[in-house]
Design a protein around this nucleic acid. Structure first.
Length: 114
DNA sequence: AGCGTGACAAGGT
DNA sequence: GACCTTGCCACGC
């Protein structure tokens, strides 16, 4: 797959992350048919301006932490946007993937209480 | 071609 | 939690 197609596949995949859910660079890459290319996802999102339509802020590191340095402008903007759509972000920039992850097993709470 | 760097990941200390 | 190492890919010099 050439570069333009890869970029399109990545942006497509990011667009499919539902509001209120989050994914990871690695997961986006895999779903875009680019397994092992998590770093390319970061690169592609980095090219787009922050007001680009794709919901770049729903993409986190594999452990649920925000990729930007704590306290940086980009970091703060990402926290704002996530919280605005109901995602809980800890003071250290961590999101509970069991609660908000895109691809996840249903949480115990969900199974018990729906 | 070689090497450093980065919005990464996984595993270990 | 904070690091560190290894593996990985894409760029720029």
């Amino acid at each position: 797959m050439h570069a333009a197609a890869a970029i399109a596949a990545i942006l497509d995949t990011v667009r499919k992350i539902p509001a209120g859910r989050v994914s990871s660079y690695g997961e986006v890459a895999a779903r875009a048919g680019l397994k092992g290319r998590a770093r390319m996802v970061g690169r592609v999102l980095g090219m787009a301006p922050q007001d680009h339509p794709v919901p770049w802020y729903r993409v986190l590191k594999a452990d649920g932490r925000i990729a930007f340095p704590l306290g940086s402008d980009a970091y703060k903007e990402q926290v704002r946007r996530l919280r605005k759509e109901g995602v809980t972000v800890s003071k250290t920039g961590r999101v509970d993937l069991a609660a908000h992850g895109w691809s996840r097993e249903q949480s115990l709470d969900e199974l018990l209480w729906g």
